[in-house]
Every structure is written in C-alpha cells, then in structure tokens.
Design a protein around this nucleic acid. Sequence first.
DNA 1: CTGTTAGCGCGTTCAC
DNA 2: GTGAACGCGCTAACAG
Lengths: 336, 336
Amino acid sequence: MARIQDVAKHAGVSVASVSRVLAGLPGVSEPTRARVMASVEALGYRPDLAARRLRSRRTDTLGLIVSDIRNPFFMEVSRAVEDMAYANRLRVMLCNADEDPEKESFYLQMMRDENVAGVILSPTLARLNNYRPTEYPFPVVLVDRCNSMVEADAVVLDNMDASLRLTRHLVDNGHRKIAFFYGASSATGQQRYDGYLSALAGAGLSPIAQALKPTVEEARIAARNFLERQRPLPDVIVASSGLILLGLVEALRDTGLKYPDDIALAGFDDMPWTRLLTPAITVIAQPTYEMGRSAIELLLARIAQPEQVVRRIMLRGELIVRESSQARRAPPSAQQ
Amino acid sequence: MARIQDVAKHAGVSVASVSRVLAGLPGVSEPTRARVMASVEALGYRPDLAARRLRSRRTDTLGLIVSDIRNPFFMEVSRAVEDMAYANRLRVMLCNADEDPEKESFYLQMMRDENVAGVILSPTLARLNNYRPTEYPFPVVLVDRCNSMVEADAVVLDNMDASLRLTRHLVDNGHRKIAFFYGASSATGQQRYDGYLSALAGAGLSPIAQALKPTVEEARIAARNFLERQRPLPDVIVASSGLILLGLVEALRDTGLKYPDDIALAGFDDMPWTRLLTPAITVIAQPTYEMGRSAIELLLARIAQPEQVVRRIMLRGELIVRESSQARRAPPSAQQ
DNA sequence: CTGTTAGCGCGTTCAC
DNA sequence: GTGAACGCGCTAACAG
C-alpha cells in the first residue's frame, strides 16, 4: 500500500502539499496540484482511514440502530438512510437492536467507540422513558419512536391521530366491539393504543386490548389463544403494526375463521401483501422512505449546526380502506 | 475522554501493562490486572479505536454487501450475519449495492479503505464473471451468487436442482406451456433458468422465457404486458425470485386473471405472504438464515486460516407445493 | 512480570 | 506557495 510519503516523493513535493491537495484546501499552485493528482493516480494511493481518523478526530460515519431489521418498515427506513448516505459519501453502520435494551446499549457504546458523527435511533421504551440527549457524545435523531416529553430531534408518524382515524373508521362502519393488539414495549405501540382508546371513548365503547411482544410469532400465538377462548368474539381486531397484523392473519388462518365475516381486521403498515390478500386489508400506510430521508436530513443539519433548535417532524398516516374492515352486518337501522 | 496514559497513571503502572490487561494477554500479575481494571472502571476509559487500528492494522470489522436490501432474502441473511457478528463481538458494515456494479465497486473500495477483516458479498453478474479473489486485500465469501468457474468460498442454493425440481413438479402436474420470468442480471437467475430449461428438455417442451430486472415493479410491468398480449396464455408462469413473484401476482391482479384457473403460478422464496394468499403459492423455500450463518462461518474460518482449501456450501431448496400450481384441467387422458 | 520507547500514517501548525 | 516536524492514542518489541 502506497502511503502519503510515497506520493510526495513520486510527485517531488512534500507530504504537506499532498495532504492539502487531497483535502481540497486552497494555497496550492495549479501545477503542484496536477502533479500530485497524477502521482496519486499512478500509485493507486488511498489515504489510510485509521490514521486520518486518529489525526482528524472525525470519521464521516453515521450509525443507524433499528429495533427490528425484519420489520419491513425499518428496511425501508434503512434503505432511505443508506441512499442518502451514499449520495453524501458517508458511511453507515447499521445495527439491529432486536428490541433488546442490552443490545441497544451495546450498539450505542459501539457508536461512541467508533466516534461516529451522529446516530439515528429507534429507541426501546426503556431508553426513551429516561432519554437524556446529553448522555451521548454525538447528535441523535430518533425515528419512529418518540414522545412529547423528550426534547430531541425526531421523525415520527402522528400515531395517536392515525390510530384514532383508523378506529373511527371502524366505528363509523358499524363495529362496536373493537379489539386492539399492540406492542406495548414501544412508544409507538402505546401511542397507537391511546389513539384507539380515545376513539372508543368518543363513541362510548369499551376497549378490548391485548399487549404483546411485537413479533409475528408472539402475535400469532396470542391471537390464536384469543380467538379460541374469547366469546363472544369482537367485531374486529386492530393490529398496531405490520408484524402483529401478519401474526393475526396467520392465527385467523390457523383457527379457520374468515374475515371480515367472522371477524373484521385492520392494522398498520401497508405491506405488499395487505392489498394482495382476499379480502384485502385496511391499513394505515406510513411514509416509510420519507421518514428515513427526513431522519438523515435532520441528522446532517444537526451535525452542521449543533446548536440549532430541536425539530420534530410528525408525518401523517394514510388510511387505506379495503374490504377487511367491513362490518358483518349493516349498521343499526336506527342510524339509517 | 480518558486515555490509556491516564489509566496507567491512575493505576500506578505503565501503559504497556494497561494495554496487556485490555488485550487479555498473559504475563500480568493478578493484583496488577485488578488495579488496572479498577482504574479503567473509575475513569470510564474506552480505548480509541482509530489509534488501535492504526497501530495494530486490524479492525475487527466485517463487510456485508448485499445486492438488494429490500429483498427479504437478503434481510434474513443480514440478520443471520448480524447475529453471529454480535455474538463474536465483531462490527458489521452493511451496504446495499442495489444491483448496481458502480455502487458495488464503491463499496468494495470502501471496504479496502476501512481495512475490514473480510467481506460477504452477493456479486453482480459482471463482477462474478471476471472474479479474481486475489484482487481484494481481504478474504471474500460469496453468498447467494456463484458459479462453478469461480474459485471462491461461497454459500449458495443448488439453484439448478431446485429450479429443475420445481419445473418437473409443474410438468408432472400436467402443465405443458411453462413460462419463466427471471432476473437475467444475476448468476442465480441464470442458473434457475438453466434448471428450468433442463427440465423442459427432459420433457420435450419448449421454453417461454422472459428476462427482466429483478424488481417488483419491473416484473409487474413485464408481466402485465405479457399477460395482455401473449395469446394463447401459457399454462403457468414461474418466477425466479420472491420479488419477481410478487410483481407477477400484482400483474395478475391488475389484469383480472385468476390463478390457478386462468394461469397457474409458482416461484422462489417462501415469503410470508405466499402461504396467506388464496390460493396459496407453490414455491421453493430457501434456508435463508442458514445461508447467512454459513457465510459468516466460512468467512471467520478463512480469516483464521487464510490458506485453507476453498469451500463451497450448496444448500438444497425445499419444494413447497400449494394450490397455485394446480393444472387447469386433468393431465391429457393419454397419460392416465 | 513490568516499563520504556519507537513508530503506525496522517493532518496541521509554523517557519521559510 | 511550500516543507519540516510534531503528535493524535495506541500496540508491540525489547530491555530490564
């Protein structure tokens, strides 16, 4: 591997000049610049990142810590972040905390060690609940999960509102006994639960809630138990995330129940299969790519302007009504 | 930030001793070790990775370059790699080459610059076709994509065999006009195409092939055109990947055609939705997690033993027969 | 078993 | 506009 010394020798200049040319600094004559560039080319020189980082104390690297990489939502977010980083010639370290606070801590520690320029994080509930921005030596942008207590740059869906609208849609369609399966271990799940409660309260209905771990398998098992034991069945079940929704559909399949006739269905995240199933499934679609893009934009802005005012971007979910949320029977005739 | 000097001073020992303790090297007395650890704790010392890497010329970092992060197949692979890396306290840099040779080159260059210990790569066809292992200063394990010409550690599905079995299943079920939609820009797609051709040849049938870019959108558009123009329609369409399969299903939906009655369907990758659709879809399931795990195992073995013999792990796909591949009508009565 | 010391390769003063 | 020299923080070789 050629070093900066070799380039300097080859070009007949000093290492300082080479460094200046490579950094694009002014104060280098055009002929010198040209000769340096030629030598860099000729020798196939590449700066040693370890040395550069040690010396400059910068890394041009971002961290992205998602809570579940299997979740298509986070895949889209990751993709957006990755795209933007590539465009800005930044490196990204993608880590999967797997909803595990310990793994999350490990990775945040790793980000410190790596001396990253900033981190995009979808925090576990535990971390969010006593979140201290000053705890980290790098700027952090929260994505997907945040609450109004926390003073931090963030990009989130308006979960409360989206869930409220989804639940109201169900109420308006004649559903009365509305069950809610949600991931209680994340702020997002809780907020969506709150939106659900709020809509029910407005309609004078009582909640039927089931908190669970936000994985397909957990949801499937919980839903199977629920569907086998709960009598009478509710009119409809709402899932607070795409993963839970998938588990629900599988449980329905397991138990032989048909939606929307035996029980209706709705949820979050417009995954590819939600519109392909027959009947297709009513969901709140999230602007996932946009969320990832906004997150990295916030982060880059914060890195450029550390003292900038805290910004929270709240995006609106889109209610996509499909067949799965139709009521078994027409609304009470009193309403007609 | 505390430095190693500070720890040494605090513990009343030399920096060398601190370094030895931290590296877990032998030749340190227990009392010294204890005092060093106490000081590390007291000062919250964390070694500077840039300095350590500059000095040691090692990074404890692996690269993972996948060709499409939106593909659930690569998500599972990534997850497996990530799990194993976490268990081994290794860092992973996950990059998405997006089927773009230029991006792929950029990331491989980046891996060089980062001085990673090794890379797991699902190469574009262009790169695979003139693959030179010696071109890289780090060991590389190929995943998902490889061919017998290439002398490299690799973990792949037995694509030829899997595709052959899938196609034979269709032939056995009475299908005669079998179309194949495949991603021609990857070795995997080509091998699956070859398996298809081989099965057709064995049955004396002629191919109806459609090469395309392996994305949902491309497949959807290509399939829509095909379904609208091609007359008579084939008996069945096979998709060489889960993404293409999804595009096919969407196109079927777009054109109002029903499977398996109007046209049957089969494909690769047992994505969650393939068994949820009605009718459910016949697929070859890949052992995705296992592939990721094997890949990193190969890589770690190669790093430990650079001169070890080249190993190629070829896994078998599992044919999962569902309703989508049923023939419109019973096989010709001559066969009965 | 422990300490001293010489770089790893680069960026950045500070002279010239 | 250019070059010499120092040091970022650490590991490893060597001396004791």
